[in-house]
């Protein structure tokens, strides 16, 4: 009888150890086995959990950037997208995490314009890269593929895409791989800035110009987080490239007009309207320089 209990107990403990085998390690394993030691250790050694708790989310939202462009009645163009046919050329975790961010932004753009045929290439690329840095379990490739192929339930397609990225990001930070999390955010941000500046060249709308100028706030925050990993050669190069872009943002000024917020309740829905207002001053020449610099850095980092 005791032996029977022990057999069952062993089985139960195995189940516990496996933990989330059903969702492939979402809460159990830290999945570090396939990552080169230098990259993994870099994350652990260089930044404290406390520092990352000060991390700012939503620094570059694919949804918001794509919605802004679409709201200006600018048509879709695949020339803005990073190509997916050289995916196997991203061989280091550094490259894989950065390009995961790049493709994440492109996926948001494609989803916003309902380009479900092209979406398949991008979700495949993202799945490959996510697997490479051991966060593929959070990317529901099968469901996304089905939704894209059937061209149905686009809200779900958008929700699962965005939620998958959030889960990957949370998991990387929880498992002391904030270095990869920061790289994904950097990829998202740089591709977002590339998209905004390239679209602005063809459709110079003031709202887009203002959005380009506002990136001064974001690049400042991004650089602070990247600096945490400056002992790594690849991060050093990235910081150096982005520093030259940040330099261009010194010519952008942002002022704030203060105002009292207002609360309005209509049909049971509560809305808070902000009357503080940020005003961006950026010259055409500065936009041009930022556009060129962004393009140069982005094209240097992606495989074409």
């Amino acid at each position: 009888m005791v032996r029977n209990y022990l057999y069952i107990l062993t089985g139960v403990l195995f189940l516990y150890a496996c933990g989330s085998c059903g969702n492939k390690g979402a809460s159990g394993t830290n999945g570090l086995n396939d990552i080169p030691d230098d990259v993994v250790n870099l994350g652990i050694a260089e930044i404290s959990e406390e520092a990352m708790q000060g991390f700012v989310d939503n620094m570059s939202s694919p949804v918001e950037m794509a919605a802004l462009i679409k709201s200006l009645n600018v048509g879709y163009s695949n020339k803005y997208l990073a190509p997916t046919d050289k995916i196997e050329d991203y061989t280091t975790n550094f490259q894989q995490a950065f390009s995961l961010g790049v493709y994440g932004l492109d996926l948001g753009y494609l989803n916003m314009y309902n380009k479900t045929n092209t979406v398949l290439d991008y979700i495949s690329a993202i799945k490959t890269l996510a697997d490479a840095i051991n966060v593929g379990q959070f990317f529901d490739f099968t469901t996304l593929k089905r939704l894209a192929q059937n061209n149905q339930n686009l809200d779900s397609l958008m929700y699962i895409s965005v939620h998958s990225f959030n889960q990957m990001d949370n998991y990387l930070r929880k498992t002391n791989r904030s270095n990869l999390s920061v790289l994904i955010v950097t990829g998202l941000w740089l591709e977002g800035n590339y998209l905004a500046t390239q679209v602005y060249k063809e459709a110079p709308h003031p709202a887009l110009k203002e959005r380009i100028g506002e990136q001064k706030i974001i690049i400042e925050k991004l650089m602070i987080f990247l600096q945490n990993f400056k002992s790594d050669k690849q991060f050093q190069n990235l910081i150096s490239e982005l520093s030259s872009l940040q330099e261009e943002y010194k010519n952008v000024s942002i002022t704030i007009e203060l105002g009292e917020p207002e609360a309005v309740e209509k049909d049971g829905m509560l809305t808070f309207i902000q009357h503080d207002k940020s005003i961006v001053n950026i010259s055409d020449e500065t936009v041009q320089r930022i556009t060129q610099k962004t393009e140069d850095i982005r094209n240097k980092l992606i495989r074409k």
Partner: peptide
Amino acid sequence: DYPSFDFKCQKTAV
């Protein structure tokens, strides 16, 4: 209590 509220943002910030 409100299950949700909208916020109309006029200032890019954290």
